[in-house]
Design a protein around this nucleic acid. Structure first.
Lengths: 322, 322
DNA sequence: GTGAAAGCGCTAACAC
DNA sequence: GTGTTAGCGCTTTCAC
């Protein structure tokens, strides 16, 4: 920067002002500085700028699983808003591991990121160091126990309830629910919606038909194998996330169980793949782009913590009607 | 840091040494400093550290499409090596757009990232500013025109050739190839492998059976619709990436074309979904974890540019044999 | 409108 | 071994 200042015959203060588009600079000087910057191929040092400004123009998006299409779909929405406001987005993969997540939260703090959007690995994930330093944080997909944070979620109870009612109305009698770990709010809420639906229809919940697995492919596989081995196996499945659904379909296929004839299937999270499975898959589609945008908007305008709840869509395809 | 130094009765230099695990500190002092750090809840400022050290302990992974499972699978491999060596990984999504990519390259530079792994949007993506500043860069998946960079790729020609031969050997006569844009090296190489296979079998390449599309779902859909409308439509398809394949399957389904009877299908990029399609999909599986690890290793030990070529696997399922 | 100068928080010579 | 100090590159008062 000194080189530029010297070459342009001005002070570093003026160079800085020009670089930051301040209006109070003599246009002539500004032009000279701009030209010199070009000529010397000068690039501002973002780290020094951040050190001085105490905030970087980067947002962190900490997702619990980059391999899940649900989370990667959020990226687009967040990015759109970020770029429109001069921020860049970097995605960090916590792998649903509290340790890894904590490490990335430290990175966000250390790098003075301007804001963080996070799908927390646990409801008690500790984001207080960020809040203490005034870094805005928004939870996405999952809620955080401490109420000090805004969140953008979907109405999981309603979504699961509707999906379950759809199966019941299609004539399935023993609907099972495969959900995620208890420490994930979506898993708990989706299970609750499932139970609500049974209750709506005057049916009793059968604990044998409720399975808690990890939110991954192998969880879905295991659940189906064990459910199928039951003395009274289910005749329909509600799967609480996308990877779980893939595993379930794979196991059903392997066991030679016909969908939708012998087993109705509805899975959470839509994906381009859902329409090319055999049969096409009925899904609970989440508005990922809107979720990402909403979270980004909350990051831009921090204020009293709010929870924005968006609606899901039940996309009925062949796997849930016989 | 001054607060810590004062409270522990030492200089900031000693605090720094302790924080960085230098061996040349009196254990007693070190213990006192560590305790004080705890007590005061002191957190080092990574930005200041980076400014001074001139390098952050973060790697950038710039992918051309976070929504493609192929790219997100790379993350795990990169992350494993990174964490084992004290680095964090942030993922940036260029969306295959040179402008967005350039912006993220600037971020990498401005944030003084310790290294960058990139799947370049174009062969001539300009990474010279990074190289000029001595930031190690490794290309992954796709090659870069300028030879100054190491790359980790697969043998796309061999993979596509093998996949095509597999279809020919299964009795398909008119195999079509749907590939990506000319500016993506994998697309060009896969097309070449396809042609090589035809040549191997003494068949003439039919330009009508070669389609160049974007590497996305809609590209696959469009290609199939147009290929099916040909006077002499193909009886088999080689799809050069995963999203293309989803689109193709979707269109085949919509047109009521039976796979594998009327149309054999082999797609690049394996995915958990591949085994639950109707019929299960034959794929060219890439060793994503190994690719990520290899790229990370090259970042750790920069040296003369090398190209590491890994092998793919042809996973034969139901979509390619009648 | 422009420049001089302080200082963001840390690390690494260098001196002791 | 430990402390003193300069300085990483920038922004921003403050004085002119």
């Amino acid at each position: 920067m000194q080189d530029v200042a010297r070459a342009a015959g001005v002070s570093t203060a003026t160079v800085s002002r020009v670089l930051n588009g301040r209006p109070d600079v003599n246009p002539e000087l500004a032009a000279r500085v701009t030209a010199t910057v070009q000529e010397l191929g000068y690039r501002p040092n973002g780290v020094a700028r951040t050190l001085r400004r105490r905030v970087a123009s980067v947002w962190g998006l900490i997702v619990s699983d980059v391999e899940s299409s649900y989370f990667t779909s959020l990226v687009r929405g967040v990015e759109a808003v970020a770029r429109a406001n001069g921020y860049s987005v970097v995605v960090c993969n916590s792998q649903d591991d509290p340790g890894t997540e904590a490490a990335y939260l430290e990175v966000a703090l250390a790098e003075q990121m301007a804001g963080v959007i996070i799908s927390p690995a646990r409801p008690d994930s500790d984001i207080s160091p960020l809040l203490a330093r005034g870094v805005p944080v928004v939870a996405i997909d999952r809620r955080l126990a401490q109420g000090a944070t805004s969140a953008v979620v979907v109405d999981n109870v309603a979504a699961a309830r509707r999906a379950t009612l759809h199966l019941l109305d299609a004539g399935y009698r023993r609907v099972a629910c495969v959900t995620g770990p208890e420490h994930v709010s979506t898993a708990v809420e989706r299970l609750r919606g499932y139970r609500d639906a049974l209750h709506d229809r005057g049916l009793e919940a059968d604990p044998a038909l409720e399975r808690v697995e990890n939110y991954r492919v192998d969880g879905g596989r295991r659940a189906v194998r064990e459910l199928a081995a039951l003395p009274e196996p289910p005749d329909a499945l509600l799967l609480a996330n996308g990877l779980l659904t893939v595993g379930a379909l794979s196991a059903l296929h392997e066991l030679g169980i016909a969908v939708p004839e012998e087993m109705g299937v509805v899975g959470f999270d839509d994906s381009p793949w859902a329409e090319v499975t055999r049969p096409p898959l009925t899904t609970v589609a989440q508005p990922t782009d809107a979720l990402g945008r909403a979270a980004a908007e909350l990051l831009l305008r921090p204020g009293a913590p709010v929870v924005r709840t968006l609606d899901t869509d039940l996309i009925v395809r062949g796997s849930s009607t016989r």
